[in-house]
Amino acid sequence: MWGKKSSYDLVRDGIPSIYPRLWRYSLVLTSNRDTADDLAQAACLRALDKADQFQPGTHLDRWMFTITHRLWINELRKNAVRTGGGLMPIEEIDLPDTKADPEMNLLSREVLLKVMALPEAQRSTVLLVYGEGYSYREASELLEIPVGTVMSRLAAARSKLVQEFVDKSDVG
């Protein structure tokens, strides 16, 4: 077995490069920076705990997104709401100003604000499909919902986004 990484090491060594995306997904799910920290950390620990179920050669990111999603839906959301970890306006999260084009940055930020204002199910699906670039099928597998539900969430989300930007000629 020399030279072969265990599932545990594969998961552990793979987490750091995935973590920023995992944290972003956590933030999109929770809308709260502190809860996102906790959720992303908890997802890492859950992944390590279940590392023997990870199939080497498959996509670690998708596996961890599913773990994160399950943690949030099944165990944490109720508790976060109950303990007052409610929504935090996205304006309160310090977004970095890294884009060279300030106008583009402003637009992106505006779109981000609108995306974060969507209902949780819609914004998480929007993140996975448009932010992460997963196909409809991949998103449905990851979220463990039918493809039709992914489609209806995206249709509803886009309808709202289009309405928000209907007068803006630079989005279309």
Binding site: P20, V28, P96, T98, M104, L107, L112, G131
Partner: peptide, 28 residues
């Protein structure tokens, strides 16, 4: 009427990737 620049969504969400959120300590 349904067209929307999904790249702007990707760009907007990419801003969240740069927020410094340290990777937790992972037991070896």
């Amino acid at each position: 009427a349904m067209r929307f620049d999904t790249d702007s969504i990707k760009d907007g969400l990419s801003g969240l990737l740069s927020i410094n959120s340290p990777v937790p300590e992972l037991p070896r």
